[in-house]
Simulated assay, not measured.
Amino acid sequence: MTRIDEGGRAARAYGRVQTRAALASVPAVAETLVGVPDAERASAIAEVAAAALPEHLRDAFVALLAETEELRRTLAVARRRIEELEKLVEADELTPVANRRGLIRDLARTLAEVGRHGVRAALIFIDVDKLKMVNDRYGHLAGDAALVHIGETLQAKLRESDTVARLGGDEFAVILRHVDAQQAQAKMEQIVAAVAATPVNVRGESFTITISAGLHVLSPGETVEGVLRFADGAMYAHKTNKR
Rank of each mutant, 00 (worst) to 15 (best):
G139S: 07
I104L: 14
N135F: 11
D136K: 09
E113K: 13
E160Q: 15
I150M: 07
T110I: 08
L123M: 13
E93N: 02
L94M: 12
M133E: 14
L141R: 15
Y138M: 08
A121L: 02
E160R: 15
H140V: 09
R116L: 14
V114Q: 01
D106W: 04
E152V: 13
L111I: 10
N99Q: 03
D92M: 01
G143N: 11
R137D: 03
V128I: 15
R116I: 02
D136H: 09
T110V: 15
H117Y: 14
Q155D: 03
E152K: 14
A156V: 00
V134R: 06
I150N: 09
I124W: 02
R101C: 04
A146C: 12
R137W: 01
H149S: 13
A145Q: 14
A121K: 01
L131H: 12
E160I: 02
R109S: 14
A122L: 05
D127C: 04
G115W: 02
L111M: 09
V114R: 01
H140M: 13
L158R: 10
H140G: 11
K130S: 07
H140W: 09
V128F: 03
R120N: 11
T95K: 00
R116P: 02
G151V: 12
A98S: 13
T163K: 09
D162Q: 03
L131P: 10
A98T: 04
L158C: 12
A122Q: 06
S161P: 00
R166C: 08
R159A: 11
T95L: 00
H149E: 08
N99I: 05
A91M: 12
I150V: 13
A145F: 02
V164L: 06
G143H: 09
E152C: 01
A146E: 05
I150G: 07
L94A: 07
V114M: 00
S161L: 11
R116Y: 06
K132L: 00
V128C: 05
E152Y: 01
R120P: 01
L107S: 10
R105Q: 12
D129R: 09
R105K: 15
T153S: 11
L94P: 05
D136C: 07
A165T: 11
R100A: 14
E93T: 11
A156H: 10
V128K: 05
R120F: 01
P96A: 02
L94V: 04
Y138H: 15
G115V: 01
H149M: 07
A142W: 13
